[in-house]
């Protein structure tokens, strides 16, 4: 029936992330800037109105020895209940509506197709005019200063794509396509996370987004499109053999090798990513080994089986091989 699991929590403090990398308040994209400005303005209004209303209640409850005029009270209902909110809200609504189209504006060329899986992200880059995508997983790379369009859908259940530092979020449906666009204007690494409850490991479905200068992005994309680098060193070579022996290629693709599986994340350049296991672990040899050794403990109900009967040496070799896939 249900898979019970215990996380070996000694590993979890290794989760990547530092203050502000997943924050709406610490922005690095034009859409996010707009939303943040909106937030501060609305917060100021909120504080003023809250203090005014509660102050009014406090005064009337405690400091109201003389009887007030009833006609005045009625005027207060009209003024405070209808006129004031109508004016304030009309202005706010008009502002809100006016910024909506920007956040879904067409992109400047690059289209990124992101597909939500249980619980990871399939990422396909479609540069303008491309006939086939550049396939990657669990990480987003974006050129700064340009608007990139996201084409979102999902495999089985609903997920939601969200990089707080860059902009708003958009749900990903099976059988439906949704669209959004982001316009980063600062280079950096920002964390995104699935925002729609998607089952047991919803909490463990994240990704890193790297924004970089357009020319760096172009270079990176070219490298990403290429085949995997061959293993370097004895241990890594042994790891490649283990990879083949254990049948990892049935689910995972490492382009340029026999491994062409499409079920799990593409691992062609997995060693160059900023995180492991869809944003939950630092990419180190130890963490690769830990992940392969007990996947279900690190990510409850994950589809990849745990290879906990693999000898320690093989495990390390496999991890070293994967870390080497830069």
């Amino acid at each position: 029936m249900r898979v019970r699991s215990r996380l070996p929590f000694a590993l979890l403090p290794g989760l990547p992330g530092c203050t502000g990398r997943q924050s709406v308040l610490d922005t690095a994209g034009t859409d996010a800037h707009t939303l943040l400005t909106m937030f501060w303005v609305m917060l100021a209004g909120l504080v003023v109105i809250w203090v005014a209303v509660n102050g009014m209640m406090l005064v009337f409850r405690h400091l109201s020895p003389r009887r007030h005029d009833e006609a005045l009270a009625r005027k207060m209902i009209v003024g405070g209940g209808i006129m004031l909110p109508t004016v304030v809200i009309s202005a706010l609504l008009a502002w809100g509506l006016s910024v909506m189209p920007d956040q879904r504006a067409p992109g400047d060329g690059l289209r990124v197709e992101v597909i939500g899986e249980q619980w990871w992200w399939r990422v396909h880059y479609w540069p303008e005019g491309a006939e086939a995508p550049v396939v990657s997983a669990n990480e987003g790379r974006l050129p700064g200063g340009l608007r990139t369009e996201f084409d979102l859908h999902s495999d089985k259940v609903i997920h939601s794509f969200w990089v707080p530092a860059l902009g708003g979020k958009m749900d990903m449906f099976p059988g439906r396509r949704t669209m959004m666009s982001l316009h980063p204007d600062e280079a950096g690494v920002f964390r995104g996370q699935c925002a729609e409850f998607c089952g047991a490991s919803h909490a463990l479905m994240a990704f890193e987004t790297v924004t970089m200068p357009p020319e760096d992005f172009a270079a990176w994309l070219e490298h990403e499109a290429g085949p995997a680098v061959p293993p370097e060193g004895e241990v890594a070579e042994r790891g490649a053999v283990v990879f083949a022996e254990q049948g990892c290629g049935a689910c995972h693709a490492v382009r340029g090798t026999a491994a062409q599986g499409q079920v799990g994340p593409d691992l062609t350049h997995v060693g160059s990513r900023h995180s492991l296991g869809a944003g939950i672990l630092e990419p180190t040899v130890e963490n690769f080994a830990a992940w392969i050794d007990h996947t279900g403990d690190l990510k409850p109900e994950v589809e990849m089986p745990a290879y906990d009967d693999l000898p320690g040496d093989d495990l390390t070799a496999l991890a070293t091989f994967l870390m080497g896939l830069k």
């Binding site: 707009t34 708003g168 979020k169 925002a195």
Partner: peptide, 11 residues
């Protein structure tokens, strides 16, 4: 306000 909602929805 829908755009602000996009930022904090489901948080």
């Amino acid at each position: 306000i829908a755009p602000f909602n996009w930022a904090v929805h489901d948080t």
